[in-house]
Amino acid sequence: MVRSWNLGTDDEQLSDRPGYELVGVVGMPPRAVGPGRAIGRRVLFALAVLLVVVFAVYVDRGGYRDANGDGISLLDCFYYATVSLSTTGYGDITPASDSARLTNIVLITPLRVVFLIVLIGTTLEVLTERSRQAFRIRRWRRTVRDHLVVVGFGTKGRSAVEAFLAEKDGKPEQIVVVDTDRAALSVANARGLVTVHGSATRADVLRVAGVPRARAVVVAPNRDDTAVLVTLTARTLAPRARILVALHEMENVRLLKQSGADQVVVSSETAGRLLGIATVAPHVVDTVEDLLTPETGLALDERPVTPAEEGRSPRELSDIVLALVRDGRMRRMGEDGTEVLRPGDRLLYVRNLQGEDGQGEMGSLFPRTQ
């Protein structure tokens, strides 16, 4: 059963809550542990507890009395520990000989432990899961930084995540997904992503997702007005983070730029242009698709100019350079000042992935700090 949380109206309330109260809001990716391994861990823990009790009884064996009156041996200590930990206790029939007690230790008690594991193991797992999740959330909140926050895990959000993970250095632990759809968050958790349940228009939800320490924020909700509110909130919390927004209508691009978006992608306009081009030049669309697919073929990429390339013309390089970024502004090839490469320039180029072992850095979406 998933617990519903009342996030309240106080903008400071959610991010100030301790980790155990964020269980159900923050979803940590599941750890892949097989049933055999889980049971093995419980058995080893039970044996460790047994040995501790045996040691404690043996050290203070002078304080124990046996009904036989022959003192307490090491075997007696094991016997006492096993019948005590298994909640068996003493009854009318008690093992009196060493062989009977050895049987109790070697055979009967392990069977009791197996019975207890099968009977209450699942219940204990449920009871302790919340504590483990709270501990993982606290540790994650202390350490998360320079990560990617994806708002909206629909088609566009999932595609952005897949593109990031396809890069050489893309790792699931670097991504946090924010959404109000529990089903979408379950899919994200299954892929190893940390999730936050809540509306990203709330500053406190974005704080829980670590937006103030994020390197980039991808805003991909289903509505343009929601995208504007999320962008405004994210820019207020993270003045230096790159904010990339997906829109449906071109008329909202200017508003998003004023709200603090670094880059805006209009899905409807882009799809419409590609459909129009496909009617007269279908292979152009195939090439664009190839450039946008990072796994094989050609790919668009971004990298800094190397010291050996400074002072040279972009046309002299082996890479096909389409544009360069200088002083934070993109300059197309052929514009004034693009004839010679300068220190600090970044190249936007076409990279051939055929024969490469891996992929390069994700330039436009998640650039590395230099």
Rank of each mutant, 00 (worst) to 15 (best):
K171G: 00
T195W: 13
V178K: 05
T122A: 14
F164Y: 15
V144Q: 01
F153M: 08
T143H: 13
R191V: 01
D169V: 10
R136I: 04
A134M: 11
G152T: 08
E173H: 11
T122W: 05
I137L: 01
A200D: 04
D146Q: 05
A203N: 02
S186C: 03
S186N: 06
D181W: 01
K156V: 04
R139Q: 06
L165F: 11
V205Q: 01
E162A: 13
A160Y: 09
V149C: 12
T123D: 11
L193R: 02
S186L: 11
E125S: 13
R158L: 11
G157K: 10
I117Y: 14
V187Q: 07
A184Q: 04
L185P: 00
S159F: 07
T180Q: 12
L185D: 04
V161M: 04
T180C: 15
E129G: 03
E125D: 04
R132H: 10
G198A: 10
E125T: 04
I137S: 00
A209S: 10
A209K: 02
L116Y: 14
F153H: 14
L116H: 12
S131A: 14
D146N: 15
R136E: 12
R136P: 00
V149S: 03
S186F: 02
R158K: 07
R132Q: 08
F164R: 00
R182K: 03
A209T: 09
T180R: 14
V144K: 00
Q133L: 15
A190K: 10
A190E: 13
E167A: 14
T180K: 14
H147P: 01
L206F: 02
A190P: 08
A184L: 07
R130F: 06
N189S: 08
R142D: 05
P172C: 08
R142N: 15
K168P: 02
G210Y: 09
G210M: 10
R139L: 07
D169P: 00
S159T: 06
S159W: 06
V205N: 00
S131N: 05
E125N: 10
G210V: 10
S186Q: 03
G121S: 15
A190L: 10
D204V: 08
A160L: 04
D204N: 03
G170E: 02
F164Q: 03
G157A: 13
V211N: 01
G170H: 05
G152N: 05
H147E: 02
A166I: 08
A203S: 14
I175S: 00
V126L: 07
R202F: 11
R138V: 03
E129I: 03
W140V: 02
T195H: 13
E129H: 15
G152H: 13
V118H: 12
G170W: 06
Q133Y: 10
E125R: 09
L119T: 12
V194H: 01
D179Q: 04
